[in-house]
Amino acid sequence: MSADFWAGYISGAAGILIGNPLDLLKVRLQAGTPSLTSTPTSYTSQFSSAGSLIRGATAPILGYGALNALLFVTYNRTSTLLNSSTKGAPPNLWTTWLAGAIGGLATWVVSTPTELVKCRAQISSSPTAASSWGITKEILRSKGIRGLYFGGVVTALRDSIGYGFYFWSYELSTRLMMSRMRERGSDTKEAAKVLLCGGFAGVVTWASIFPLDVIKTRVQTQILADSASSPLLGAAVVAEGAERRRLGAVEVARNAYRSEGPGVFFRGLTVCSIRAFIVNAAQWAVYEWIMNELDPGRKIRG
């Protein structure tokens, strides 16, 4: 397979391992976990054992590696196609955003089931019920393959917009940093440039789509009509007396706004931004390093 496939796969898996503890906090804040308040004690209480640090990580490690591989392969191919008429020149920032958005949309087939299983594992209050494989089997048993793609529309929208800004901000920050260094007549360490630009790209990406991610999390973790597991978001069911059903993204967003105000769509953003900087700095560093190892003729971006 191509160098960017393996670079994307390995960097994606590495990012999950690094960022899973903070991702667990983000998901629980977004879903409105009652026991989680904004105090240090309540944050640390979420990690009662070593196993809790990697809760919900199995699905993302397997799925996100494939997702990241698909993302980078699609982005690189699309970017090359869109900029075929300007060979030798830096890619246009608009086509960079568009190529990223197309790459993000292509990941939908992997990201939706991965996010669904991950979020439910992280929200579960029962350690024995938090197995990614156990949750997957339960969904397949009760809902079939379609059950793994619940929340797919809002996930696709989130990924398309988010990854558009992801590659756009990385490209923009790389150019600005290199331009500033040339003006000062100094040379910058390549590793430092990649880490800073990668971290910045991660923060910009999540800031641009965080409300959509909150809605996605709540859509995917709401109570199931025929599930034997404990309710995750009891407020997401319809009025008493009616048949229980899962709500769509618009209904979930409307209910969240009415009950918790506009601030609910930014709950967990601080934790997410810290995680995004660390994870994406590491991901881009791993990606660029592997690309240079597998394709020695290629120069690091910038």
Rank of each mutant, 00 (worst) to 15 (best):
L116M: 01
C272Y: 03
K26N: 10
K189D: 15
G261P: 07
Q222P: 10
P231T: 11
T205K: 12
P40Q: 05
N280T: 00
R301L: 10
G51V: 08
L93H: 06
A7E: 08
R180E: 15
L71F: 14
D23E: 06
N92L: 09
L196C: 11
Y75L: 12
W206F: 12
V219Y: 15
A69P: 02
A256F: 01
G51P: 05
R258H: 10
G185H: 09
G261L: 08
G100N: 13
I278R: 00
L82P: 02
K137S: 06
V250D: 06
V238L: 12
A253D: 07
F47L: 12
W289I: 01
A249L: 00
E115I: 02
R55S: 14
C272H: 09
K137T: 00
V117K: 08
L176V: 08
D23M: 13
L172W: 14
W206E: 04
T58S: 10
S186D: 09
S142R: 10
V252M: 15
N255D: 12
I18E: 01
F47W: 11
E260I: 03
P231K: 05
T221F: 07
F165A: 06
S273A: 14
G234A: 13
V109G: 00
K189G: 13
K189Y: 08
G198L: 11
L29S: 06
E183T: 00
N76H: 06
T128P: 02
D226I: 03
R244K: 14
Y64K: 04
L24P: 04
R245N: 09
T155M: 09
F150W: 07
A106S: 15
N255G: 15
V264T: 11
S84W: 02
A7I: 07
V219H: 14
A281R: 03
L62M: 10
C119A: 14
S11V: 04
L53D: 00
D187C: 05
G144L: 08
R175Y: 06
E115K: 02
I209E: 00
L25W: 05
R218A: 08
P60M: 11
R244C: 01
G234K: 05
L148K: 13
D295Q: 11
G297Y: 06
V194P: 13
S126L: 10
S49M: 12
Y9P: 00
R298S: 14
W133K: 04
A201N: 04
N92F: 04
I161F: 13
L116C: 01
P211C: 01
T136M: 14
L232T: 08
I10P: 02
G100V: 04
A69E: 02
T107I: 03
L105M: 04
G65I: 13
E183G: 02
G248R: 11
R218V: 08
S48R: 12
G8R: 02
A235G: 15
A253V: 11
A285S: 13
T95L: 08
F72T: 12
W97E: 00
A276P: 01
V286S: 01
Y170I: 03
G12P: 09
Y166C: 00
S11M: 06
A99C: 02
N76Q: 11
S229N: 09
A99T: 01
M291H: 01
G12V: 05
T74P: 03
